[in-house]
Each structure stands twice: as structure tokens, then as C-alpha cells.
Computed example of a mutant assay.
Amino acid sequence: MPIKAFPIAVAASVAALTAANAADLPSRKMAPAAPTVYGPGPYNWTGLYVGLGGAYDRARSSATTATGGRNNTRSGAAFGGYAGYNVQLGPIVYGLEADAAVLSSGSKSNRLAGATNFRGRYDGSVRARAGYAFDRWLVYGTGGLAFRDQKVSSGLTAKSKTQTGWLAGVGVERALTDNLIARVEYTHADYGKTKALVPAGLGRGRSTDDRIMAGLSYKFGL
């Protein structure tokens, strides 16, 4: 081999050996990481909802006259709807709600002395709500303005009046799905005293109402 060609041959041999060793080294390219899978987060109660419900209703009315007190108790079913909006801040849920219900024909009684009959026809409320959320469970309290139509008749005399008062209660809700929410609620309403509650001659009247309601609502969003 000519002396001048010797360095070129050595350089070529070194290059070939380096390339062969490099091919045998493990690849520095890492396998792609598996995607991270996240589970569903806590339920979010924020949003608009509408619902329907049925209830057992028990009302008490009293009249004070010159001859003493007279009491009347009536019970029956109530059917209606409700709508509201919630805002959730951490575990605390705030909201506003309005509801209205029609009282069944059985929601009446004539046990007040003097053959006086009290008949409730419809009622409703506008109220605030505040509660604590345990993921898909919500325990809350509620309170606000209550109203109802009360008809009182005695013989040929009858009076109908829309009464107003206050309402307070407690309830629990469960999100069955992201949009369907079941509810059980107890409320107490007090309509105060009014002369127009009873026919002439019976004096002053006072009314209260206790109700246990079960409902199902649809929450928009999510």
C-alpha cells in the first residue's frame, strides 16, 4: 500500500467502527408516556333548575270570638312546581327559589263551630336558600315570603282572601344524574292574623301551614 494512502485507510476504518458501535447503543428516544386519566370532579350545583312535586299539607286556622276560641284543622294533598337558581362557592350553595301549588279538594274541613268551612285553593312562596354540599348531596335551609288563597264560608256568607306571611323550612337534595335532582323538604308557613279570614261575627283569625314535599327537578347546564 502506498504510504500516502495509509492515513486515509486508517481514517475510514475508524469511521466504520464508530458507526457500528453507535448502531449497537440503545436508543435515547423514550417511549411515549401513557395519558393521564382523571375521574369525575365534585358535582357542581350552580345553575338554573325547574321541578315538579307533590306534598302532604296540614293547615290550622283559629278564630277568636267573644265566646272563646274556635279551631279548625284541615289536611290534604298539594301539587305544584318550583324553579330557582343556585350558586356554589366551595361547599356552600346559595340560591333563590319560587314555587306555587294547587291544593286538592280534600284540603278542607268544617269542624269549626258554627258550620264554618275553611278551604285553601292555591299557595306559593318566594324564598332564599343556603346549604352545604357533600358532592352530590345538598342539605339546606330556606326562608322567605309565603302567600295563599283562603276561602271561608259560613251559611250564605263567604269570603276569599289572598293572605301573606312568612315561610321557613329545611330540605335535602340528591343529584341522581348531572341534570336530575330529587328532593325531600319540610316547610312551615305562618300567615298571621286577619279579620278578613273569617265571616262577620266570628272575630279575628290566624292560620299556619305545615308541609312535607317530595320533588324532582331538572338542572340546566353542566
Rank of each mutant, 00 (worst) to 15 (best):
M1K: 10
I3T: 12
F6Y: 13
A9E: 12
V10F: 09
A11W: 02
V14W: 00
L17C: 08
A19N: 12
N21G: 14
A22G: 09
L25P: 00
A33V: 11
A33P: 15
V37N: 09
Y38K: 14
P40A: 14
G41D: 08
Y43F: 15
N44T: 03
T46E: 07
G54I: 05
Y56T: 06
Y56A: 12
R58G: 07
R58H: 13
R58E: 06
A59W: 01
T65S: 15
A66R: 09
N71R: 13
T73C: 06
R74N: 10
S75N: 13
G76L: 02
A77G: 11
G81A: 10
Y82H: 14
V87S: 12
I92F: 09
I92D: 04
G95L: 04
L96M: 12
A100S: 11
A101M: 12
S107I: 00
K108N: 11
A113K: 10
G114F: 06
T116C: 01
F118N: 14
R119D: 10
G120W: 02
Y122D: 01
S125F: 01
V126E: 06
G131D: 07
G131P: 08
A133I: 02
D135G: 01
A146Q: 02
F147P: 01
F147N: 00
R148S: 13
D149S: 14
Q150R: 01
S154V: 04
S154Q: 15
K159Q: 13
S160L: 00
Q163I: 11
T164L: 07
W166R: 04
R174F: 13
R183C: 02
T187I: 07
A189Q: 05
A189E: 00
D190F: 00
Y191V: 04
G192L: 06
T194S: 15
K195A: 15
A196W: 00
L197H: 03
V198Y: 05
L202D: 10
R204K: 11
S207F: 08
T208K: 13
T208G: 09
D209M: 03
I212P: 07
I212D: 07
M213Y: 00
M213H: 04
M213F: 02
A214P: 01
A214R: 05
A214Q: 00
G215W: 00
G215Q: 02
S217K: 00
S217N: 01
S217P: 08
L222H: 15
L222T: 13
L222C: 02
